[in-house]
């Protein structure tokens, strides 16, 4: 385990749950009730309840096969549900297509596809643009701004196969930003990127959160959970624990989540070992 010297101030990022009186009149960005998803009659997610509050960065953590990707795909309506309801801003997603911004895993697409960085980011605007409408000045402006935010403007007209892993990840982030959604789901945005890019991405996520957006991030590196996230969802087929990092990210909860599979415990987890 790598000791992390100057990290004593981890407390300052530790959030409190928002005032319930404050959010009472506004529907939650994401509310999941008794969600069960199964493949071939085998339940991958079982009875998941989840309320995500506005303006939070939520880490989704759990072992391989815990159903993390399944959860976000189910939220986006990409998978058939066996049971349960999912409300986005108090309404089903079907009534408001494009309400969720999505950053898939990088390997999910063919990077030899003949498009430029600009084209890919532009695709973020297609959903809300509607059928038969062609992107115009407004969409180009959104696209330019999104590329600026991830510092990829000078790559706009590069073909996507000429990008490094970190750059590909930033293109996906820019495409998600171009969706201009209130709720973002990200599938391992930090996988395979270098430290500088990782820092830039988390900075970007924080900026987005501070404007009131809500972000769910699937994450694998337990060491950085306490630094990066406001809330954490410990998932292993069902919700093991969910809440502010300070309350939930404990050694005991991690043990329950990972079973015997967790060899090294992160330093920032609370509770005695």
């Amino acid at each position: 385990m790598i000791p992390q010297g100057e990290q004593g101030s981890a407390d300052e990022g530790r959030p409190n749950l928002p005032d319930s009186s404050l959010g009472a009149d506004r529907p939650l960005p994401l509310s999941v009730r008794s969600l069960t998803v199964s493949y071939d009659r085998k339940a991958v997610l079982w009875n998941v309840d989840l309320d995500v509050f506005a303006g939070r960065i939520v880490g989704v953590v759990g072992p391989n096969g815990a159903g993390k990707t399944t959860l976000i795909k189910a939220i986006m309506g990409l998978l058939p549900l066996q049971s349960g309801t999912i409300l986005i801003n108090g309404k089903p997603l079907k009534k408001q297509p494009g309400a969720i911004g999505y950053v898939p895993q990088r390997e999910s697409v063919d990077w030899d596809f003949p498009v430029t960085v600009h084209d890919v980011v532009m695709m973020g605007t297609y959903g809300t643009l509607g059928l038969f409408r062609r992107p115009g000045r407004k969409q180009r402006e959104i696209c330019r701004r999104s590329l600026d935010q991830v510092h990829m403007s000078s790559y706009a007209h590069r073909q996507i196969s000429n990008l490094s892993g970190g750059q590909q990840q930033r293109v996906f982030l820019a495409r998600a930003l171009a969706q201009e959604a209130d709720l973002y789901l990200m599938d391992e945005p930090f996988a395979g990127v270098d430290a500088a890019t990782e820092a830039a991405i988390i900075e970007l996520l924080r900026t987005q959160r501070d404007t009131g957006r809500t972000i769910l991030v699937i994450h694998h590196d337990l060491q950085s959970v306490a630094d990066y996230f406001d809330d954490v969802l410990l998932l292993n087929r069902h919700v093991v624990a969910y809440g502010p990092v300070g309350d939930v990210f404990t050694v005991e909860n991690l043990r329950t989540t990972y079973g015997g599979k967790l060899a090294v415990l992160p330093e920032h987890a609370n509770g005695e070992t």
Binding site: G98, V120, G127
Partner: peptide, 23 residues
């Protein structure tokens, strides 16, 4: 010509296109 952007988006990333509201 009418559905060019949908065709292109679906070809590039089917899941993202679906998630972003393209039929």
């Amino acid at each position: 010509l009418l559905t060019y952007k949908e065709l292109a988006a679906t070809c590039f990333d089917l899941e993202f296109a679906t998630a972003s509201g393209i039929p």
